[in-house]
């Protein structure tokens, strides 16, 4: 297990370096940053000066190197626009996005697991049909629409919950439910199909032949096996949620990572976008790593396979 973990961690570091470098390249290639920042009326001199000021006249590899050294020390540069350190901009918004993402994920998992297991126990029954229908509508409903419906019903009509901002825990209830609704269908479906497949396996019959209580067969023998792909999908979903949801953050007026990224892309704030890229790459890498380690912890076959 230890050597498995070590190998996986080394691999993750390589992936991360590659991702940041490619990201750096792509952003550079997207156009002359100095020219677009200087504005339409700037003279060639102005642009050249700005370019020098921002260090954009240095060779690409050197710039990546400087950026990397800085990044490793926690310095992601300063925003071209607000002149604030990028790390600070992120730190201010990370809390809201993290809270939202984790809350949405917890809701999704808590709902999907029993839903999927239940549907798998009686495949093609009316319960199963109802669940498929709910899952389908969950996926089909756009987040902004659901968000607005929630706001008008729970916020305005019933006045149960606040509808905008991120001051209290209550502020996160509606947006995280909206995010969860879009995450649940895929998860529940995966739990269902995984359970159906596992329940038809020979080892389930063996477990039953031992006279084990039904719940023991279900949890210990079936669910544990069915969980492997679910863990991987959950990691990917959490990664996506951490990237921030532009729409849900906008609808509920939460100033999170999604909003920051959206604004920065719009105005070509290179350091912030690059930092965002690192953040997304880092979250995905770490989450995939954690998921792989969890799966290896559950399934011994993954540990021994190199």
């Amino acid at each position: 297990m230890l050597s498995f973990a070590r190998d996986r961690i080394l691999l993750s570091v390589c992936v991360l370096l590659t991702a940041t470098f490619v990201g750096f390249l792509l952003l550079q290639a997207s156009g002359d940053l100095a020219a677009s920042l200087a504005g339409e009326n700037a003279s060639a001199d102005d642009i050249a000066q700005l370019r020098q000021q921002l260090g954009l006249d240095q060779p690409l590899l050197l710039r990546y190197w400087h950026w990397l050294i800085g990044a490793l020390q926690g310095d992601l540069g300063t925003s071209y626009f607000t002149r604030e350190p990028v790390t600070g901009l992120f730190a201010e918004r990370l809390g809201a996005t993290l809270t939202l993402a984790i809350a949405a994920l917890v809701i999704s998992v808590v709902v999907s697991l029993p839903l999927g297991v239940f549907a798998a126990l009686k495949p093609n029954s009316w319960v199963d049909g109802l669940l498929s229908l709910l899952a389908l509508s969950g996926q089909a409903v756009p987040s902004f629409w659901l968000g607005l419906i929630f706001i008008s019903f729970f916020g305005v009509t019933l006045r149960w919950l606040p509808i905008s901002g991120s001051d209290t825990a209550m502020h996160f209830v509606l947006p995280s439910v909206v995010l969860a609704v879009s995450a649940i269908p895929a998860l529940a479906r995966l739990v269902r199909s995984g359970m159906i497949e596992v329940l038809s396996q020979d080892y389930i019959r063996t477990a039953r032949s031992k006279g084990l209580p039904r719940h023991r067969v279900l949890m210990r023998h079936a669910l544990r096996n069915a969980l492997l792909p679910v863990i991987s999908l959950t990691a990917v979903q959490l990664g996506a949620l951490l990237g921030g949801s532009v729409i849900v953050e906008a609808v509920f007026a939460i100033d999170g990572i999604g909003q920051l990224t959206f604004r920065s892309i719009q105005r070509g704030d290179f350091p912030v976008v690059q930092a965002m890229l690192v953040f997304v790459a880092l979250s995905y890498t770490v989450l995939t790593l954690v998921a792989d380690l969890m799966n290896a912890w559950i399934d011994p076959r993954l540990r021994s396979r190199k």
Binding site: Q201, D202, Y203, T206, N225, R301
Partner: peptide, 9 residues
């Protein structure tokens, strides 16, 4: 092989 659960010792 299939009658034994792959993930339990």
């Amino acid at each position: 092989l299939t009658a034994l659960n792959p993930i339990l010792s």
